Simulated scan of single mutants.
Amino acid sequence: MNDAPAPDAVPARPWREEDGPRPQVWTWPRTDPPALWVMSGGRPRRATVIARQDWADGSVYYQVTVDLHGDTTKRILLYRWPQPGLSVAHRSSAQPSRDVDPAQQGDMPRRP
């Protein structure tokens, strides 16, 4: 039995035009987002999911906010799913949506 900790999660680069069609992006209400455990420095760090991206090649990526070093500095990173350094921390009770309602998603208000 292998009790070694999972390797650190490897961040991905953002989508680029040469990757093909833009990914489909799914979001959850900001009141109940899912969360992932992201291994960083050999320790699991809780990451709040901002969005799921389904790329044209069939790959899935999660955009998250995470404190990688335990110093309260949050970063926004993208991770390809699945990989050994990621696991589910919390599932949302809400279904994801492609409809972005700024009041629900936490966007900044727009000028009138």
Rank of each mutant, 00 (worst) to 15 (best):
Q83N: 01
L68Y: 02
V49Q: 04
S87Y: 08
Q63F: 10
Y62D: 06
Y61K: 13
V49H: 04
R80E: 04
G70N: 05
V60Y: 06
L68E: 05
G58A: 04
A47H: 02
Q53G: 04
G58L: 05
T73M: 09
Q83T: 02
P82F: 13
T72G: 10
L77E: 06
Q63C: 10
Y79M: 05
R52H: 13
S87D: 11
A51S: 15
A56F: 05
Q63D: 10
G70E: 02
Q53V: 06
D54H: 10
D57P: 15
L86Q: 03
A47G: 10
A51E: 15
T65C: 07
V49A: 02
A56I: 05
R80H: 02
Y61R: 07
T73C: 01
V66H: 10
G85W: 00
T73E: 09
A51L: 13
G58C: 05
A51P: 12
V88Q: 06
Y62K: 08
S59N: 11
T65N: 13
D54R: 11
G85N: 00
K74G: 01
Y61P: 04
V60M: 10
G70S: 05
G58H: 04
S87Q: 08
S87W: 04
W55M: 07
G58S: 06
Q83M: 04
H69S: 13
I76K: 08
P82M: 07
P82Q: 10
V60L: 14
V60W: 11
G58W: 06
A47T: 04
H69A: 15
V60H: 12
Y79F: 15
W55D: 12
T73V: 14
D67T: 15
G85C: 00
T72D: 13
T48P: 06
S59K: 14
L78H: 05
V66I: 14
K74H: 09
T65E: 12
Q63A: 12
A89Q: 02
S59V: 12
L86V: 04
T73I: 11
L68P: 07
G70D: 03
G58F: 06
V88D: 00
V66K: 08
K74C: 00
D71A: 09
R80N: 01
R75A: 03
P84K: 01
S87A: 14
A89P: 01
Q83R: 01
Y62P: 10
G70H: 05
W55F: 14
G85T: 01
I76R: 14
I50R: 04
L78A: 04
Y62R: 11
I50K: 03
Y61L: 13
I76E: 14
A89F: 00
L86W: 03
L86S: 01
P84N: 00
A47S: 04
V49I: 15
Q63N: 07
A47W: 00
T65H: 11
W81L: 13
Y79N: 02
G58N: 02
I76L: 11
Y61W: 10
V60N: 05
L77W: 07
D71V: 10
R52P: 11
D54T: 09
T48Q: 08
T73R: 12
L77T: 01
L77D: 03
Y79D: 03
G85Q: 00
S87I: 06
K74Q: 09
Y61T: 10
A89R: 00
R80Y: 01
T48W: 07
V60P: 08
P82W: 12
T65S: 14
